[in-house]
């Protein structure tokens, strides 16, 4: 009986420990390492599917998203009917992150509206776009390789 009670106590402790570890893992998955955007940019441009996409400046980001994050990298093509883009931003705080997130959501839904009825391929790409936030980074990708770019990005910022 004593042994059984002891075993149960150990089991209980182990499960509680498991829960704590799980929570710690979840919370750290929400955070990210400190990697400067320039390094991210260098690594991301090595990914496939980016060769015909060009670096955009702050004015371009402003005209597409309406805001300019403190740090960002933005790549898209020159062709007008091409919806592919890769946008990575680093927010300086929770407020900036909220602003970036809603600007991005508005941009994607605006794009979907613009192309619905005219460009089913573009709409499909936009609906399959990948957007996520991790730590103080925001990531948005539209394109056939969006998922691969996301995986590479996650590896970079841990």
């Amino acid at each position: 009986m004593q042994k059984k009670k002891q075993k149960l106590n150990i089991a209980e402790g182990a499960v509680l420990l498991g829960i704590v570890i799980f929570i710690i893992c979840i919370m750290s998955a929400n955070s990210s390492a400190d990697v400067p955007i320039s390094v991210i940019e260098q690594k991301m441009t090595e990914q496939e599917g980016l060769s015909d996409m060009f670096r955009q400046d702050a004015a371009s980001v402003k005209s597409v998203y309406g805001i300019v994050p403190s740090e960002f990298m933005y790549y898209k093509t020159d062709a007008v009917m091409d919806v592919r883009e890769l946008f990575i931003a680093r927010a300086s705080g929770a407020d900036e992150m909220d602003a970036i997130e809603s600007a991005a959501a508005e941009h994607i839904s605006g794009q979907i509206d613009a192309f619905t009825g005219y460009g089913p391929d573009q709409v499909a790409l936009l609906e399959h776009s990948v957007s996520m936030k991790k730590g103080d980074y925001f990531f948005l990708a539209v394109g056939d390789h969006a998922e691969q770019w996301q995986e590479a990005f996650i590896k970079l910022i841990g």
Binding site: P120, V123, M132, E147, E151
Partner: peptide
Amino acid sequence: NRNLQLFPRLTWNTVTSGR
């Protein structure tokens, strides 16, 4: 007038993210 969803890409990442 739209593209239809085909069988989605199956990877660890897409499954754990819910995609």
